[in-house]
């Protein structure tokens, strides 16, 4: 409950102080404000975008940024921190081309140099250093390594496919184990009941003494119990425990029965029974609309009865309280 902070409309937790840098409107005042982010990584709210770009492309309204933008180029950001958003996007884009792996290189040093180069490119793009040069380098890399890129992309796709299949299998296996375990528990319970019925039957009809019957049967049952427990331990030792939380619910409910949720120091006023209807010429009969507003003469009757009966039947508990 605490880990997921949500608003009624189902979006993630939103900071009420967040504001649109263009119109200075805050989320506190307009809870439904949608902040979108442009190609040049500037935030603004939906209504500002609608207003500014109603007549087609214009310059970015943020001072100092001269980029020409269109309405369509705004997207919803994944991260609140725009520098993170920018870097993630750059890395995602680069990763499509720079997907060489360890096995594509002969020596570890070459691989390290390659990784170093990619980091440098990301840094340059992220901080707008030598943009032209960097872009040219990326292009030349893409044309030089076209074959390797295509091959690695295919490989990656296959690997992802494989991983999802493995995960699927694991889930199925866990489910199966869990079902087996619940079945076994049910069987054990059945066996217990059958045993109980048998003992009662014996006690009722046999001529033997009750003590000897119980001794015999008791020992037999203990043995069978142990056997079942052993088989359970052997079968289920791979992470089934966490699946069993739901099973204990019934026993837990029994445990907390003695809990007193009301815990009032005051005595209830009783000795009266509240009837559904009274002959009453005083209070109006409630119309449908009065009832819909929450009016119910029942409470007036109950209150009157309580005032009539309170204090008549004195109780020690109450006396102590007032003394």
């Amino acid at each position: 409950m605490t880990s997921r902070l949500t608003t009624p409309n189902g979006k993630g937790f939103q900071d009420p102080d967040e504001e649109c840098p263009v119109c200075r409107n805050t989320r506190y005042l307009t809870p439904n404000m949608r902040l979108l982010v442009s190609e040049c990584y500037h935030k603004m709210c939906q209504s500002c975008i609608d207003r500014l770009f109603a007549n087609g492309a214009t310059e970015c309204p943020i001072p100092g940024c001269k980029k020409t933008l269109r309405k369509i180029s705004f997207v919803e950001p994944t991260f609140e921190d725009l520098s993170v958003e920018k870097e993630v996007r750059i890395r995602k884009k680069l990763a499509q081309q720079f997907n060489k792996r360890r096995e594509d290189f002969n020596a570890p040093k070459e691989y390290n140099d390659y990784l170093e180069m990619v980091e440098k490119l990301v840094w340059n793009l992220n901080n707008d250093i030598d943009l032209e040069k960097t872009k040219a380098r990326i292009e030349s890399f893409a044309t030089e390594n076209r074959e390797i890129i295509a091959r690695n992309a295919k490989k990656q796709f296959e690997e992802e496919e494989w991983a999802s299949r493995v995960q699927d299998n694991e889930r199925k296996k866990k489910k199966k184990n869990f079902e087996e375990y619940t079945n076994k528990l049910a069987e054990e319970k059945k066996a217990k009941e059958a045993h109980k019925a048998e003992v009662i039957e014996l006690l009722a009809n046999s001529t033997e003494s009750a003590k000897s019957i119980l001794e015999k049967k008791g020992v037999a049952r203990k043995k069978s119990n142990i056997r079942i427990k052993d088989s359970l331990d052997n079968d289920n030792n791979d992470g089934i425990g966490e699946l069993l939380i739901g099973l204990d619910k019934v026993s837990q409910e029994e445990e907390t029965k003695e809990f007193d949720p009301i815990a009032s120091e005051y005595m209830d006023i009783d000795h009266y029974t509240l009837k559904d209807k009274y002959y009453d010429t005083y209070l109006p009969t409630p119309s449908l609309i009065m009832r819909a507003g929450g009016y119910n003469p029942k409470f007036a009757y109950e209150r009157s009865l309580q005032s009539a009966f309170s204090g008549i039947f004195s109780d020690k508990k109450e006396e102590k309280m007032y003394s």
Binding site: G293, G294, Y295
Partner: peptide, 16 residues
């Protein structure tokens, strides 16, 4: 505020 209160009832009870 409970929904019934928006319809200006003259009487209401514990439910609010």
């Amino acid at each position: 505020r409970a929904p019934e209160l928006f319809f200006t009832p003259a009487q209401y009870g514990y439910a609010v």
